[in-house]
Nucleic acid binder design. Structure first.
Lengths: 129, 129, 129, 129
DNA sequence: GTGGTCTAGACCACC
DNA sequence: GTGGTCTAGACCACG
């Protein structure tokens, strides 16, 4: 995995974990890879992984069982709000930024649409290469 | 101005300058506020402002005239691409993130639309308060 | 049983054993449940239980009879001091802490009294639910 | 400062900070000693201090100003609840423990009173030494 | 084997 | 100078 050096690695690891959970790669109740294993996969120090997980454990997204491992919570309400929360946060950030660049609501939507169309064509093109 | 602790302040100042230019608050050729003045406005240390400006000068967005001050470039092609570049970058980032959360292209657009509607109603409400 | 993550489980098990003895649930001379049985009851690993018992045996609170099991000591002087010792230790700890928070002796006593009254009312209420 | 090796050092540092604040040794708004300074005073590693402070910052008890230092919050409501919270937690813990040892409410109070009297005499004695 | 804590020491952003 | 992040490596509690 590649990290953006403009934002703390542990923070990006948190986002990564969110992704794995929301996309269903890590189902509720399943055990995460061992911290040392994660550290290897992400080519990062164990402590850095643990710092990320610690916050997720505090937020009850993950459950830590001593000597056994870390697990995705099985609490459905926690997980349900999680996905929506992340999407809304992301949308809010980009919306604020684009408004600050003087785009109107309508312009933002059309910009998004044309961007996606363009990406669609590009990806198609990339795929054909 | 409020800064996000998770990303370097000098980086956020760069974005701020971009904003001022693109929204026309700082017209091409006009002189920027003095560095010390900017530092006060942004409640940030002078060194931090200077680091941000240094990079903008290197990118030829700003022109530094020794003993006179810093000025927004008058080079139209530079400015023309700038705005579009920033918007595309932002859209690209949010698009990648939302795709990583398993949203389809269509879901991304509708999520954006409903988000904007919701914000519109909220802001209206806030305004009436 | 629930354990506090912040202090070693084997240590909390020792406290649990003390409790059983002092409250008379485990009379002097009686045999303890098998280690495996205790481990199940406390939802804890056998090794962890054994570590706790080892220390209690060393302190002569428990007597280990090879191939037969573990027994509560019948030595009355040992048991007599035990209860008092535990209470005094607890009182000492809380007293020191509250003094460190600037409470006077008198404030500590009244705080304790009002706390107990409050708890009494709450428990009564819970009971009626 | 001496630490109890039965509970994490960073946790005890948190308690220490609480104490300093509640007893007024660290007034609202005042700057804490530098983390490296605290580490020396507490004969502990810098990271350990920082781990403790990080949680207090997250809880808004402390305010961290980049490049300047850490400060006790000036938010009065946060501080007002803090002291009471700590005392109640402490009382709750000791109450539960003593009840588990079969003491009645009344016995707990009198035990506390006699303990304090005894301590008072002892301290007096120590003082005269 | 698992996770949790602590240390020593480095580097960065910011004042 | 300040705090924040990261690394490498050790040791402990627990299963």
């Amino acid at each position: 995995m590649q990290f953006d050096d403009k934002v703390p690695i542990y923070y990006q690891i948190k986002q990564y974990v969110y992704q794995q959970i929301i996309t269903g790669k890590w189902q509720p109740g399943t055990q995460l890879p061992a911290v040392r294993q994660l550290a290897v996969e992400l080519t990062v120090n164990v402590n850095t992984v643990q710092r990320a997980l610690r916050e997720l454990i505090a937020a009850q997204i993950l459950i830590s069982k001593r000597g056994k491992g870390n697990f995705v919570t099985t609490d459905q309400t926690t997980l349900a709000t999680l996905a929506d929360q992340l999407v809304q946060d992301r949308l809010g950030a980009v919306y604020d930024d684009l408004r600050a660049l003087n785009l109107t609501d309508q312009q933002i939507i059309t910009a998004m649409q044309t961007y996606i169309e363009k990406r669609g064509r590009q990806d198609e093109h990339d795929f054909n290469d």
